[in-house]
C-alpha cells in the first residue's frame, strides 16, 4: 500500500526525477517563505498605529510595485527578450489611456491586445 502511494507521488509522465526528500524540502521551505512574505507584516503590524511617515510611504507601494511589475512582465527578463518592443510599449500606453477613459478592466484588456496585434503587424 505504502509503496503504491510512493509510486504515485514520484510518478511523472516521462524523464528523470529528483528525490522525494529534496522535493519535499523545497515545497515546504518555499511555502513557508511565501506565507511569511505575505502575512508577516500583516500579522506584525495589525492592531498597531503606524507612524505617519510610514503610512504616507505605504500609500505609494501599490502604484510603485504594480508599475514596476508592468515593466517586468513586458520585458520578461527571465527569457532572452530583455527589452520592450514598440508594439508592446504602444499597447501598454494605449491600455493606460483606455483605462483612464473608461475605467473598465475588460475593455482595457481587449482593446490593449487589439492595439498590440495591429501594431505588431505594422512595425
Amino acid at each position: 500500500m505504502l509503496s503504491s502511494v510512493l509510486q504515485l507521488v514520484t510518478w511523472r509522465i516521462e524523464g528523470p526525477v529528483m528525490g522525494n526528500a529534496e522535493a519535499l524540502f523545497l515545497v515546504v521551505a518555499i511555502t513557508i517563505i511565501t506565507y511569511l512574505s505575505r502575512g508577516g507584516m500583516i500579522l506584525l503590524l495589525a492592531g498597531r498605529d503606524l507612524p505617519e511617515p510610514v503610512t504616507r510611504a505605504l500609500r505609494n507601494v501599490g502604484p510603485a510595485v504594480l508599475a514596476a511589475l508592468v515593466v517586468t512582465f513586458v520585458a520578461n527578463p527571465d527569457e532572452a527578450n530583455q527589452g520592450v518592443t514598440l508594439p508592446e510599449g504602444l499597447a501598454v500606453a494605449a491600455a493606460s489611456l483606455i483605462h483612464w477613459k473608461w475605467k473598465n478592466l475588460a475593455v482595457t484588456l481587449v482593446l490593449g491586445m487589439i492595439v498590440f496585434w495591429v501594431t505588431r503587424e505594422l512595425f
Binding site: 500609500r59 513586458v74 483606455i98 483605462h99
Partner: peptide, 23 residues
C-alpha cells in the same frame, strides 16, 4: 502573445491608483 495581457491589466490598475502627484 497573451503573455502581454497581465501587463495591460496592471497598467490599467496603476492608472486607477495614480490619483495624485506622489502616486
Amino acid at each position: 502573445g497573451l503573455g502581454l495581457a497581465p501587463a495591460l491589466m496592471f497598467a490599467g490598475i496603476v492608472v486607477s491608483m495614480a490619483v495624485n502627484r506622489p502616486a
